[in-house]
Nucleic acid binder design. Structure first.
Lengths: 214, 214
DNA sequence: GTCTATATACCGATAGAC
DNA sequence: GTCTATCGGTATATAGAC
């Protein structure tokens, strides 16, 4: 993995850590994130979260009004995370194609745990119907932002001649769909060897397969 | 869309229709499929299914032992569907790359409704934890089958010189991940114009971008 | 600040009517 | 074959103890 990718991962995790607050509330959110991403909103019990966080069931209600309330808070966090990752990638001192390469390595990395959970939460928030109205609204409103940010990098890459001259929006949508699917697959199989790398992923938008030495 | 893709869609839908049985039980399954794929197992109420199917709540229990029982039945149907689609694509009288092209068009088509729902159900069955043990087992056991079937076509394409000489398993995994992600994106946005086509999707495994006229 | 105990409501499943 | 009524279990959220 490139050193810039590692930097990116660290920045993403740091951003998560600083967004999530402190004290008991932080503990609740961190653990709720894990449980929600595994079981989904409807199937997780407040007692699951409490147990995982090391508190009693009733204690959760000192910090949150309801289960939905916790979920909405997490969706809010997750919604800002995606855009942040792309923006940080854009700040790297690399050509556009390499910025996207590092973003991809970061997003597919085993170490981007918060990223992985976030994508699952947003998945639930946008595909499910048994989700608080407010969570759906937040997720839908923020969905275009990472796409917009990536579009900008893609256009830069098209000018530089590394990226295919298709509609940048469609390329960006294809990109995040691919990443989404890969994260899900990784979660399902937990097989680290038989897994596509960033090089393969980016081939669908690269003009020349660059140099086929992997 | 190619005519072979339309044929494929028809075969997939027919296969679904003939697998699902008849009478009231069929009505329950068809409607449970819709509700489950939207809300997830935990969040759907038996009454949701009953309402959607036009029956009373208690009537469901004349045909199924429990809510889990319905879900397991659907997972069973979904599990056979994916492999069937790939096998049918393989029977098309085309070169390997074109078989995969048609498979892709079929899977991304608006008309492959059963396919879309199936993927969502399998997604739940493999990523969720609050899922009946039997459903997880069925889903996990069947997961490698479409991959195996696609691998065979990919290898054929590599011999024919149309597909990149990467590990066929990894290419197949990447392919289904991509499709999975795209189906989810399509469901989230419902925007038919700004959407990648089969040509773009397949670029990551094509040796030559063939002829770049789209 | 944290836990225990409880009320309130809801849902899955059953039993029995038509 | 289909529906209505109901029981029992379980989870959320509250209230009050320590």
């Amino acid at each position: 993995m490139r050193k810039e990718s590692r930097l990116l991962i660290k920045e993403i995790e740091d951003n998560f850590n600083s967004s999530v607050g402190d004290g008991s509330k932080r503990k609740i959110i961190e653990n709720a994130l894990k449980v929600f991403s595994k079981k989904g909103l409807a199937a997780t019990r407040i007692s699951d979260i409490a147990l995982q966080a090391g508190f009693s069931q009733g204690f959760i209600y000192n910090h949150f009004k309801s289960k939905d309330d916790i979920f909405i808070e997490i969706v809010r966090l997750a919604s800002s995370g995606g855009e942040y990752a792309v923006k940080q990638a854009d700040k790297l001192n690399l050509c556009a194609a390499d910025k996207i390469f590092c973003l991809t390595e970061a997003m597919l990395s085993e170490d981007s745990l918060s990223m992985e959970h976030f994508r699952l939460i947003l998945l639930q928030a946008t595909t499910g119907e048994a989700i608080p109205e407010q969570a759906i609204r937040i997720a839908k409103e923020s969905a275009p932002k990472p796409i917009q940010a990536l579009m900008k990098i893609i256009q830069e890459g098209q000018v530089q001649g590394d990226i295919i001259n298709d509609d940048p929006i469609i390329l960006a949508i294809a990109y995040f769909s691919f990443i989404q699917g890969l994260v899900i697959t990784k979660l399902q199989t937990r097989n680290k060897e038989l897994f596509p790398d960033a090089e393969m992923v980016l081939r669908f938008m690269r003009k020349k397969p660059a140099d086929e030495s992997i």
